[in-house]
Amino acid sequence: MKTLFNVFAVCTALLLGYGFCQAMYIAPTEATMGDVQRIFYYHLPSAWIAFLLFFVNFLASVWYLIRRTNGGDALALASAEVGVSFCTIVLITGPIWARPIWGIWWTWDARLTSTLVLWLIYVSYLVLRHYATGGQIPVLAAALGIFGFLDVPIVYMAIRWFRTQHPQPVIGGGEGSGLDPAMWHAVLWNLAAFAMLALMFVWIRYKQALAEQALEEAHAQASLDYDSETETEGAQ
């Protein structure tokens, strides 16, 4: 299993390197924006992967509420955590791209605001998981994950439903939208590379979450054993 993981990690690193070359050197320079448009090759795949991971969190949360399995809870936590890191990238690279093109870092339009709300929902999910105590925390977190996911379609559709500063979608955006085929190569290579990286992160975090649960149970058992030992000694 470890060998398989190492092979996967090496493939991911190679793909990330190739994706970087595609984005920086091979993809053609956009006519209006110039080289700064290359931020797009990291911005768009990161957004799609964040959405995908929040969807995984949604499914795992539903699964946990139905079956109450440790695996469902661990997968929900892992996908939310990795999803937040990708969503953070979207929220930082977006304004860095916007500044030279729009002349502003941020505007409260529907796409940007709903993405910020999405990020806040899943950050609050992680805060709940990290700081709250009690047996019902996974249930509350699952409920938050399910209702939090409702924001993902809103983020996705925001540029179709509202007049926004954000550009129109590259897929199904209507007349005048879309991408040069050479640009698609860079998008797809980076999407594959980041998907593999995300899968690796989720896998590691999933295993850790399972180990944390086992460790907590072992701690609880150890303290129970200790209590019963001290009670026996006290009685003697």
């Binding site: 700064v36 990161s46 890191s85 990238i89 500044r99 030279p100 992160f201």
Partner: peptide, 21 residues
Amino acid sequence: NNNAYLYAAYIVVWVIHCVYA
């Protein structure tokens, strides 16, 4: 100047992934 934004964005992406790893 615009290239500085491009480099900044790429550096941020890799810093976030490295910090998380």
